[in-house]
Design a protein around this nucleic acid. Structure first.
Lengths: 336, 336
DNA sequence: CTGAAAGCGCTAACAC
DNA sequence: GTGTTAGCGCTTTCAG
């Protein structure tokens, strides 16, 4: 069933039917009713291809998703995506995720831009230097960076305050009297990891504490590597008395490592993990730096993206949300 | 840059340029060269909307993905998806995942079918009674069921042999002398869970063993519920001496529960989990029923889907792969 | 081998 | 209020 057939069926012109369907005001109530009824009866739905072609936009937004890093597996990411699609559904728009091999990532961005297959993109997991953002900026294609990056021109982004989050954690740990602090980081190419580490280093300096580089471990982004990182810290001559883990998958591994090593968490070692912790950690309430409202954040991002598409300048679409420190049972004064 | 402009630039007609670009034979070599060169130079790429509209197909395949169940978080699923997109990339086609709220799932199927936004769909995580499959079948829309379902008419599906996998596990456990066997199942609405449980029950009967319903626990699909399920089994008067877990996320939780309870795995209790086990289980090699070649399976499924689109009858597109038992260090004869 | 023209299904000026 | 007509950018008869 297409517009023309539906129009003939009703004895009207395509125009009128189209107008009635799209809620234009200049159509009589009676006509509109009849059209809507007929559309329902015949299961009519506008062909999105044709519609997009005529309109120049698709009402579809996208995320290009390189498979491999285990972060579709990341529950936080899923919550955000859920928020996005729920928000879009309400407006009759939609979200698509294009899973691609890592090698094809940038090429896919180019395809999407040239082909205008979507009205805008969300760029997740930003890197310190991010060629995707450089590309989209240059192409003047609408996008929201989910996380900041180093880029001279203004661009639209949404992020949580990495420095503030680490600040909260450090303040608490230093307040408890810790002096030997460790940090387990994701790869430092990732912007959030970089910023969190910088904030850590800055806080140490502010506190007049020397940095022990043995306590700084990077490149952990999953359970296994988080587990190993904590083992490495435990093996140090004089262990750190408190450890911050900058991502929650590593956090699960790290806490697991403490449990398996029989370390009394919160007594021998204090731990704070960035990100909500998952189920089953033997019932331990891990202290976390939480990014509240993941779903709302997702909704906000698509809202920003739509504003961008409609012409709002990117410079005014930059939003920084505050994380919160949620105290669990993994904090205490240093042991010795 | 669009076709017309490119054609004008070259002083040719749109037709010729289109033909050259699409590899039609009736165009002279010299012309083709010039066209391809110009296309590259000007970064020309056909507008996919227009192309799809004219052609009646998009070369895009889809997966509609209800968010909530934590299975985008499922590493196995990701491996399969990776295989799919890699296979499609090679042919210049692509895969999209449409994440939707659970409430909107069926409506989205209808949209996709009516709008012909994709040439075909993969339906994952099939249920025993699956309305999505009923709908697609009736609408005669091309799809591959990833997992079987109860459906009278022939439909195209890809699956691993659930009965055979459980058979392997049971044979091994019974061979070791186990008589009190437990099964931790996903929700039995899911087809794989149903089939695996049926196979379990059948194997018990074949062995002349009575079924202890306390040992049958269902509705576990994540770490937490798997953990609880195992705790429940451990609390039984006379514990089972061997347990099969029918999905790997629950398996992680279940093994974790054993570790936390101080149960010696492989001695006090033997365990087999369906699905590859993740990292960090304190170095334990869990015995698994493995579905080998996830990526190849994904590739095969899109291949089947393309065949279907091109007219191969669904009845001849049904493929059953065999799982394998991979022995780890979690098996032994019953304790008592 | 190349081009003119029709058509995919829809929207949007521009009349009436 | 409603209809006519001209596109959106591409492919594909049908002529030459």
């Amino acid at each position: 069933m297409n517009l023309e057939r539906l129009a003939n069926l009703l004895g009207m012109s395509k125009t009128t039917v189209s107008r009635a369907l799209n809620g234009y005001p200049e159509v009589s109530e009676r006509t509109r009713e009849r059209v809507l009824q007929a559309a329902r009866d015949n299961g009519y739905q506008a062909n999105p291809m044709a519609r997009s072609l005529a309109l120049g936009r698709s009402n579809v937004f996208g995320i290009i998703y390189p498979l491999q890093p285990a972060d579709l597996g990341d529950a936080m990411f899923l919550d955000v995506v859920a928020g996005m699609s729920a928000a879009l559904e309400q407006e009759g728009k939609s979200l698509i995720i294009a899973p691609v091999s890592q090698a094809a990532e940038l090429a896919t961005y180019q395809q999407f831009v040239r082909g205008r297959r979507v009205d805008g993109l969300i760029v997740s997991r930003t890197q310190v230097q991010d060629e995707r953002i450089a590309f989209l900026s240059k192409a003047r294609f609408p996008f929201i960076a989910h996380g900041r990056t180093e880029h001279h021109a203004p661009y639209a982004w949404f992020d949580y305050d990495n420095a503030a989050g680490i600040g909260l954690a450090m303040q608490r740990l230093l307040g408890l009297g810790h002096r030997r602090l460790g940090l387990i980081s994701a790869p430092l190419l990732l912007n959030f990891a970089r910023q969190r580490k910088d904030a850590f280093v800055a806080a140490m300096a502010d506190a007049g504490l020397a940095l022990d580089t043995r306590y700084l471990i990077a490149d952990t982004l999953d359970r296994r590597s988080g587990y190993q990182a904590m083992q490495q810290l435990l093996a140090c001559q004089s262990r750190p008395t408190a450890v911050i883990v900058d991502n929650h998958l590593s956090g699960v591994g790290a806490v697991r490592a403490l449990l398996d090593a029989g370390v009394r968490i919160g007594e021998e070692i204090s731990v704070i993990v960035w990100g909500r912790m998952e189920d089953t950690l033997a019932g331990i309430a891990v202290s976390t730096i939480d990014q509240p409202d993941a779903a709302r954040a997702g909704a906000r991002m698509v809202q920003m993206l739509q504003a961008l598409v409609e012409g709002t300048p990117a410079a005014s679409l930059q939003e920084l949300w505050q994380p919160a420190l949620i105290e669990g049972a993994t904090l205490g004064p240093p042991a010795s």
